[in-house]
């Protein structure tokens, strides 16, 4: 049986990288006494899949991890036990049981929602709140993206699903699929550059608010949180 865990990563633990979060969970699951399934072979490892890596320095209210269990009590019990095995900085929010046909967390990711704030004194030099609409309204936003093989020209606009001011923070829904992942900082850099400004060092406070999967079609996407494809009780 496969379950999907949703968790928060906050505070001091934003300095822990993705690989360390994976290692943390491998041990936390053992401390919690959860009956996780292992691969076979000489060096068995837990059958686990993380949705989308979160960069060092970012907080998140919507991280996901799938794991395969040999036996199952109930979702609330797993949340409670895992929380007891966690430290300040990682909090388990929910657990749901996945239908058999559900894809793994990583392959399921289509988009992620972020809130972005500027640190005090590091705000843009222009009236940025009022320029979002015109930036987001552009037909295309060509940028140069650094890749492993060098640089590539991409159209950022294709990967920005929404961008709006919410109170004093900027909300963005961005492509987070493995093929088209867009980092929030890239969008802000393009936004500032569009307004003849440059991003100051370590200027952004970014929180990933949710990670989404597409239950529609590529042409008619319907984005729902990753946890929405599961149930709170075991499937019959």
């Amino acid at each position: 049986m496969k379950i999907r865990i949703k968790f928060r990563k906050y505070g001091n633990l934003k300095y822990i990288g993705h690989l360390d979060v994976q290692r943390f969970f491998q041990k936390a699951v053992r401390r919690a006494g959860i009956d996780v399934a292992y691969t076979t072979g000489f060096s068995p490892h837990q059958i686990m899949s993380f949705a989308a890596p979160l960069g060092v320095g970012l907080e998140s209210n919507g991280e996901y991890m799938d794991m395969e269990l040999n036996s199952f009590t109930d979702c609330q019990d797993i949340v409670t036990r895992l929380n007891q095995a966690c430290v300040e900085g990682i909090e388990i929010l929910s657990a749901v049981v996945l239908p058999k046909e559900a894809g793994n967390a990583m392959a399921s990711v289509a988009a992620a929602g972020y809130t972005v704030r500027f640190r005090e004194g590091r705000e843009p030099e222009f009236d940025w709140q009022n320029r979002i609409a015109s930036f987001y309204g552009r037909e295309s936003i060509p940028v140069t993206k650094e890749t492993k093989k060098g640089t590539a020209e991409i159209d950022l606009k294709q990967g920005i699903f929404s961008m709006e001011l919410r109170g004093d923070t900027l909300y963005m829904l961005l492509d987070a699929s493995s093929a088209g992942n867009i980092k929030p900082q890239m969008v802000i850099e393009a936004f500032l550059s569009d307004n003849q400004d440059t991003l100051k060092e370590n200027a952004l406070l970014i929180t990933r608010e949710e990670t989404y999967t597409n239950i529609g079609t590529p042409d008619m996407p319907k984005l729902v949180p990753l946890e929405a494809v599961g149930l709170e009780t075991a499937y019959e």
């Binding site: 001091n12 633990l13 300095y15 822990i16 990288g17 360390d20 041990k27 936390a28 401390r31 060092v56 320095g57 430290v87 300040e88 900085g89 060092e201 370590n202």
Partner: peptide
């Protein structure tokens, strides 16, 4: 600012299990 600039900030934050 410092933690984001240096290598392996996890060395300095404590809070381990």
């Amino acid at each position: 600012d410092i933690l984001m600039k240096i290598e392996k900030p996890a060395r300095y934050i404590g809070g381990e299990v």
